[in-house]
C-alpha cells in the first residue's frame, strides 16, 4: 500500500458458502485496487458484480475472505480501521425510535467522538443536507428522500477521511440530488476520499475522478472517466438548415453519413475534418456546431459488461 492510499485490496476473494453445499458463489474473485487520498472513486457494475461485497469486506461487515484488504493500513476486522470511515449503505434502515438530531448524536458518539464535539457539528450538518426543519422528528416519519439525506449526514457526522456512499441519491428529488452532488464535491475539495457506488452513470461521470467497472467479482476496467470513454471517430455536425445534397457535398470525405434534419454524423478522422468543413462552407452550409463523439460512460459500461458476458477478451 502506498503512503497516499487510504484503502487497498490485493487479490481479494470472497466465496459465499451455503451449508451442506460444495463450492459456493464467488462474490469477489481476485480483486486488486488502491484508492488515493482526496479522490472520488466510482464503483460500477451490474447487480451481483461484487461491488457491495467489496465495500462490506473493507468495513468488516463481511468476513471469511482471502487476500489482503487494508483501510488506513489496518485490517478490516480491527474496529479502529473504521474510526475515520463513514458509510451510507444502500437501502439502509436507521433506528426509527430516534429523531434525526438524536440519530446524528448517537452515530457521532459511536464513532468515538466526544458529545460536545458531535453537538457542535450536528446543526451545520443538518443544514447542509437540508434536514434542519425535520431534525426533531422521528426518523420513522421521514420520507425516502429524507431518510437518504439523514443517512448521508450520519456517514459524515464524525468528520471521516474516507466515505463509502452506496446509491447516495436514491429516492432524492432533483434539487436534493444537486445538493448532494455539491456536498460530495465540497468533501473532495476538503481532502476527503469518497467511494461512490451508483447505478446513475451520469452522476458517476459528473463526480468521479476514477472509476472501476466490476462484473462477476472481477475488475473489468479501471481508469479516469476519459480513459473509459474513448473517442468513437464519429463527428456530429449541426447545421443552420436541413440539406438534401449532403451526400454530394461530402462525397469522398469520411464514411457512414447519417442525416437527421439539421444534424448529421460522419465517421471521419482528424486529418479529414478540415476538408469536410471546407466543403460544407464552400457549398454555403451554415455550421452551428462540430462535436467529436465520445463513448459515454453508460455505453462504455455496457460494452464492457456485454463483452464480459460473451466471454470476449477485455
Amino acid at each position: 500500500m502506498s503512503d497516499a492510499a487510504v484503502l487497498s485490496v490485493r487479490d481479494l476473494r470472497k466465496v459465499y458458502k451455503k451449508p451442506f453445499e460444495k463450492g459456493g458463489i464467488a462474490a469477489l474473485d481476485g480483486v486488486s485496487l488502491e484508492v488515493g487520498r482526496g479522490t472520488i472513486f466510482g464503483l460500477l457494475g451490474p447487480n451481483g458484480a461484487g461491488k457491495t461485497t467489496l465495500v462490506k469486506v473493507l468495513l468488516g461487515l463481511v468476513r471469511g475472505h482471502t487476500g489482503e484488504a487494508r483501510l488506513f493500513g489496518l485490517e478490516p476486522l480491527d474496529p479502529r480501521s473504521r474510526e475515520r470511515v463513514g458509510y451510507l449503505p444502500e437501502a439502509h434502515r436507521l433506528p426509527g425510535h430516534l429523531t434525526g438530531r438524536q440519530l446524528l448524536r448517537l452515530f457521532g458518539r459511536l464513532s468515538g467522538r466526544a458529545p460536545a464535539d458531535v453537538d457542535s457539528r450536528v446543526g451545520a450538518l443538518l443544514e447542509r443536507v437540508g434536514m434542519e426543519k425535520a431534525a426533531d422528528r422521528k426518523v420513522r416519519e421521514y420520507s425516502k428522500g429524507m431518510q437518504q439525506r439523514i443517512g448521508l449526514a450520519q456517514a459524515l457526522v464524525h468528520s471521516p477521511d474516507l466515505v463509502f456512499l452506496d446509491e447516495p441519491t436514491d429516492g432524492v428529488d432533483p434539487v436534493g440530488r444537486a445538493q448532494i452532488r455539491e456536498l460530495v464535491l465540497e468533501l473532495k475539495r476538503s481532502g476527503v476520499t469518497l467511494f461512490l457506488n451508483s447505478h446513475l452513470l451520469l452522476e458517476v461521470e459528473l463526480m468521479c475522478d476514477r472509476v472501476v467497472i466490476m462484473d462477476k467479482g472481477r475488475i473489468l476496467r479501471e481508469g479516469t472517466i476519459a480513459d473509459l470513454t474513448p473517442a468513437t471517430g464519429v463527428v456530429r455536425f449541426e447545421i443552420g438548415a436541413p440539406r438534401a445534397d449532403l451526400d454530394r457535398v461530402l462525397a469522398g470525405v469520411g464514411a457512414n453519413l447519417r442525416v437527421d434534419g439539421a444534424t448529421f454524423q460522419l465517421a471521419i478522422g482528424p486529418a479529414e475534418l478540415d476538408s469536410a468543413i471546407d466543403r460544407l462552407r464552400a457549398a454555403g452550409v451554415s455550421i452551428r456546431a462540430v462535436e467529436p463523439r465520445r463513448l459515454n460512460l453508460e455505453e462504455a459500461f455496457l460494452d464492457l459488461v456485454r463483452a464480459s458476458n460473451s466471454g470476449s477478451p477485455r
Binding site: 462490506k56 468495513l59 468488516g60 461487515l61 474496529p79 479502529r80 480501521s81 473504521r82 474510526e83 470511515v85 458509510y87 449503505p89 439502509h92 434502515r93 436507521l94 433506528p95 452515530f107 459511536l110 464513532s111 468515538g112 443517512g151 450520519q154
Partner: peptide, 9 residues
C-alpha cells in the same frame, strides 16, 4: 440496519 450500525468502530 446492521450495515449502518456495524460499520461503526
Amino acid at each position: 440496519a446492521a450495515d449502518t450500525l456495524f460499520s461503526k468502530p
